[in-house]
Computed example of a mutant assay.
Amino acid sequence: MKQSYLLYLLFFVFFFSLSSCEDSSSETTTDNTVFEQEKELQNVAYGDDTQQKYDIYLPKNRSAAKTKAIVLVHGGAWVEGDKKDMKATYDYLKIFATEYAVVNINYRLANFTRQPFPMQTDDIRMVLEDLKNKSQEYGIMNQYALVGVSAGAHISMLYSYKYDTENNVKAVVDVVGPTDFLHTSYTSSQNPEVQQAAIGIQLLFGKFFQGNSNYYENISPKYAVNNQSPPTIMFYAGEDTLVPFGQGEVLRETLESFGVANNYHFYPNVGHELDDASIADVLTKSTTFIKAHLK
């Protein structure tokens, strides 16, 4: 009798402990769950390629009902660069845009045997899908601002204007990004450095401008603008020989023709690598713009 009682007691304790473990591991969150502590994750994989990684900063007091995300997309002529190039911007936003999650991404880099498109816009899509799938885990909404520099600005605009069919991108920051490969600022430039840049683009993409207008229209953000395109803030430089400032002017005209909210800023005396004063101005104006449209 005593032995039977002990066996019963042991069984009860074991079963209760097992049930308690199962209950704690199945704890769930909802859109209204508030995460009181900030959190930061490094090199989160969103695909199978080693380059498909992102860092994410999750602010305190966030929830999937209210917290939106800013996604940073580095430059590098589609063939180089790394998320570490955006680290200063990442750190700035953690301090001056504390109501947002900040995501700093890497994407698959192109070469002469691996074309940039649609590979790199696919990577932006995959990042946003991963963030959406982890909305409850992270405590963030499926609404974003994309901040891109140079080639990163190009693929950010192209994705937002053309492939964001659910309109989850609410604002775009374009820092010296190409917008129209068929514009005269590339095709008819008399500047040898701009001509060299145009040759490099054609070699990388594997097609000449002449005779391939359909291809270049397909990968130029300007031609994808419509009246549903997200508000866009643009920054261009007067001495830029990689992305001539005409690229910004033609985008501004196109956005305005469709009634899309936009801001245009021009730095006449700097080149593609903006100076410190211009960078500080970009950060301040971009943050204000994001807060106005990602709210």
Results as ranks from 00 to 15, higher is better:
Met1Phe: 14
Lys2Met: 13
Lys2Val: 14
Gln3Gly: 07
Tyr8Val: 12
Leu10Tyr: 07
Phe14Ala: 15
Phe16Leu: 15
Ser24Gln: 11
Ser24Trp: 14
Ser25Tyr: 15
Ser25Ile: 15
Ser26Pro: 00
Asp31Val: 12
Asn32Ala: 13
Asn32Glu: 15
Val34Ile: 15
Val34Ala: 09
Val34Met: 12
Gln37Tyr: 12
Leu41Ile: 14
Ala45Trp: 09
Asp48Phe: 03
Asp49Leu: 11
Asp55Ser: 07
Ile56Gln: 09
Leu58Arg: 02
Ala69Arg: 06
Leu72Ile: 06
Leu72Thr: 10
Val73Lys: 02
His74Thr: 05
Gly76Arg: 02
Trp78Arg: 04
Glu80Ser: 14
Lys83His: 06
Asp85Thr: 06
Ala88Gly: 09
Ala88Arg: 01
Thr89Cys: 07
Tyr90Trp: 08
Asp91Tyr: 01
Tyr92Ala: 08
Tyr92Lys: 01
Lys94Gly: 06
Phe96Gly: 00
Tyr100His: 07
Ala101Lys: 08
Ala101Thr: 05
Val102Ala: 08
Asn106Lys: 04
Phe112Glu: 15
Thr113Pro: 00
Arg114Glu: 15
Thr121Ile: 15
Arg125Gly: 00
Met126Ala: 15
Val127Cys: 08
Leu128Pro: 10
Leu131Val: 13
Asn133Ser: 13
Asn133Tyr: 13
Lys134Val: 00
Gly139Asn: 03
Asn142Arg: 02
Gln143Met: 09
Ser150Arg: 01
Ala151Val: 00
His154Ser: 00
His154Tyr: 07
Leu158Glu: 05
Tyr159Ala: 05
Tyr159Ser: 02
Tyr159Leu: 01
Ser160Ala: 14
Tyr163Trp: 06
Tyr163Leu: 10
Asp164Tyr: 04
Asn167Thr: 01
Val172Ser: 01
Val175Tyr: 03
Val176Pro: 00
Gly177Tyr: 02
Leu182Ile: 04
His183Tyr: 12
Thr184Val: 03
Gln190Pro: 01
Pro192Cys: 07
Gln196Ser: 14
Ile199Pro: 00
Ile199Leu: 10
Gly200Asp: 14
Gly200Thr: 10
Gly200Leu: 12
Ile201Phe: 14
Gln202Leu: 08
Leu204Arg: 02
Leu204Asp: 07
Leu204Asn: 03
Phe205Thr: 00
Asn212Trp: 11
Tyr216Cys: 05
Asn218Phe: 14
Ile219Trp: 11
Ser220Gln: 09
Lys222Phe: 09
Lys222Gly: 05
Lys222Cys: 07
Ala224Phe: 06
Ile233Ala: 03
Leu242Lys: 14
Leu242Cys: 05
Leu242Ala: 10
Pro244Cys: 01
Gly246Ser: 08
Gln247Met: 08
Gly248Val: 03
Gly248Ser: 01
Glu249Gly: 02
Val250Gly: 02
Arg252Leu: 09
Glu253Lys: 06
Phe258Asn: 03
Ala261Thr: 13
Asn262Pro: 03
Tyr264Cys: 00
His265Trp: 12
Phe266Ala: 06
Asn269Cys: 08
Gly271Pro: 06
His272Ala: 02
Glu273Ile: 11
Glu273Asn: 12
Asp275Asn: 15
Asp276Ala: 14
Thr284Cys: 05
Thr287Leu: 08
Thr287Tyr: 08
Ile290Asp: 07
His293Cys: 07
His293Ala: 05
Leu294Ile: 04
Lys295Trp: 04
